[in-house]
């Protein structure tokens, strides 16, 4: 094993010099997503199939946080080269292409979600393609994605977040970082009655309990 992988040659990105590391183990190693112990797969098989709220954990994805300068045209171009789409520069917007999606988090911060096995590749390509001052951080183990949908999904979310979810205020594609119950979440609308939540690992058991409780009156269906 090498002691240290500096993924890009020193001379090319003297300004970054950050460590990139493939953090994904081989398939023989069991990976436990944040909601592994909730055993959602069994619930999907044995639980109710009818209800106003549906939940699926989109687990073990690659979560990359990019911080860079939105006024740096070279950096914006580099993002397009790596991800095949432009960074969403308008506040609270998101873009999605194939299995890659980008969420505006802050004027200089974006959350990029890619398939778990692609994370290292994307990171490496960023280091190859992008110059100047930026940071790219792999947070894949620290959060998970919940897909929430159904006729009552908005009713359930309204119990959980102070954000106005009316379609006039929260159209498909909008993304917010906000309070969710007594934790936080990144909420993105992916359809009229479909939302994506990015939640932190350490809060995921609490939020799973919360969502079950808040969905009780509508019925909760777990999908695999």
């Amino acid at each position: 094993m090498s002691d240290l992988t500096v993924a890009v040659p020193e001379e090319k990105v003297a300004s970054t010099k950050a460590v990139v590391m493939n953090q994904v183990a081989g398939p023989e190693v069991r990976a436990e997503s944040p909601l592994y112990h909730a055993d959602l797969d069994s619930l999907a098989k044995q639980g109710p199939r009818k209800g106003g709220v549906r939940l699926r954990e989109n687990k073990l994805l690659g979560h990359l946080t990019l911080r860079c300068n939105p006024n740096n045209a070279d950096q914006l171009a580099a993002v397009e080269r790596v991800l095949g789409m432009a960074l969403p520069l308008q506040p609270l917007t998101s873009v999605e292409k194939g299995d890659v999606s980008i969420r505006w988090m802050s004027p200089d911060e974006w959350l990029i979600i890619v398939p778990g096995l692609k994370a290292f590749d994307v990171e490496t390509r960023f280091r190859d393609e992008m110059d100047g001052h930026y940071s790219l951080v792999n947070g894949s183990g620290g959060s998970t994605v919940l897909e929430l949908s159904g006729d009552n999904v908005v009713d359930m979310l309204k119990k959980s977040t102070p954000i106005d979810l009316h379609p006039s205020e929260f159209p498909v594609g909008k993304v917010v970082s906000t309070v969710f119950a007594k934790s936080t979440a990144v909420i993105r609308r992916t359809g009229e009655k479909q939302f994506e939540l990015v939640i932190r690992r350490s809060f995921s058991d609490y939020l799973w309990l919360w969502i079950q409780d808040a969905s009780r009156e509508f019925g909760l269906v777990v999908d695999a």
Binding site: P91, L92, S106, P107, P162, T178, V179
Partner: peptide
Amino acid sequence: PHCAEYREEEEF
């Protein structure tokens, strides 16, 4: 002024 919309105090 960064998110360009009103939010509840509990976010701040």
